[in-house]
Computed example of a mutant assay.
Amino acid sequence: MASNSRNKRKIFSELFDLLRSYVNEEVDYELHPTLYPNTSAGADLFIETSEEVDFQFDVDHEFHSIFKYEGELYYCFTGNDLDLSRINRDIFEPVIGDFFDALFVLVHSQYIKNCLHTVSRTDIYDTILHVGDNEDPNRAKPIDIEDLLGCFSIVKAYKICSGSVYDVENLDKVKGYFSVKSSINILPFNDSTRASFSTLFDCSYKAIPFDIVHLAFITNSYKQCFTELYRCIEQLFPVPTLQGLIGTGKLSVLCPLEIAEIFEDNIGWRPRETEAIEAVFKELEQSLLDRLNSVTADTNYAGFSHHKFIYRLRNQNVHFRKSLGVGSLSNYKWEELIGIMLDIIYKLYEKYDSKIISS
């Protein structure tokens, strides 16, 4: 649990100040100077002592965060009109009641700093900030947390069920799951491709760069999607060679310069990317390689080896040199390739994950 507790009074004071500033632009009446929320003791304790694991602003939903409280992880985000019907409630349990109130307050007070534009300033004044005929403005006025909820952007909150593959402090992994389930992608992925994305997010391999996989899912370009997935494979380039070096005993030499030379000669793979791809592809199932052959058939890449095709297409979309040409495929071929890349990534990390991340 966080060692530096938050000050609940200060958090709510900032929220109310934000509402006053927002209402002042339109309502020319006395605004109540002292307010306090009638949140429960349970919500107050969550607000003051929960640990912020991670937070991110993003393009799909406005904001994402993970909080930890009493050993449990909580995922929350802002965003309207999302189809969350396919969220597995055995993995992500919707948060209601006191803990939801606490998460709502934490999101808006610490990060969003924004009033909901669909709520009028006069409504906020009438509901929260007015001074009633029988009210003393010098005494704190209690505010129902339910009234406060309507003044800010909608927050969705879920408890991550203990023991699931998502019970890890990895915001990108959780975001990826919700993005796939709520169908926020721009590219028209078919069910098979979506299932391959889901398989990656659902797996327990810790070395997968889930932020890159998520970026591949939400991008609006097949070329960009392919390039991001290439980066997931690129991360593995030094691994086969390093495994070989560890097994040979060469690293037992005492001179640091000799070790540096060995690393440079063997792991400094640039400009030997095609060989690096070939090394990580070496033990892939033949069925995956056959699927790559089906992509290159009837294209300018027909006859290319698997690793040379992938590297050539990557270069054509990363570098701008006339000699490389333009890397293009039909939309059907692009989606076919992306599905294969996702399955290749799964198989490669199945093989190498334990070599990269110690358990």
Rank of each mutant, 00 (worst) to 15 (best):
D81I: 13
E275D: 13
D83R: 05
F189L: 00
A297G: 13
E275L: 11
K250C: 11
F304T: 13
F104R: 04
T118D: 14
N315L: 04
F226T: 02
L348V: 01
F152A: 05
G176F: 03
F99C: 12
Y177W: 02
Q316S: 08
R6N: 08
H214R: 13
K347Q: 14
E275M: 14
I356C: 11
I277L: 12
G327C: 06
G163C: 06
D211V: 10
W334R: 11
C115Y: 14
K175S: 12
R291I: 03
L19C: 00
I262P: 02
G339Y: 07
Y125N: 12
S182M: 09
L257S: 15
D167W: 02
I338S: 04
D83Q: 06
N134M: 12
T241E: 05
Y230E: 00
A279D: 00
C232W: 02
I345S: 01
T193L: 00
D98E: 11
D54Q: 13
E169N: 12
A140S: 10
N134K: 14
R121E: 10
C203H: 09
I340Q: 06
D58N: 13
K68Q: 09
G247V: 03
M1T: 08
V174F: 01
Q224S: 11
L106Y: 03
Q56A: 15
L187E: 03
L35R: 00
N266L: 01
F210H: 10
V280T: 04
K175T: 11
E261S: 06
I145Q: 01
D202R: 04
N7M: 05
L103N: 02
D343F: 09
S13L: 14
G268Y: 10
I184W: 01
E62M: 08
L342N: 00
L45N: 14
E14Y: 11
S109K: 01
L215G: 13
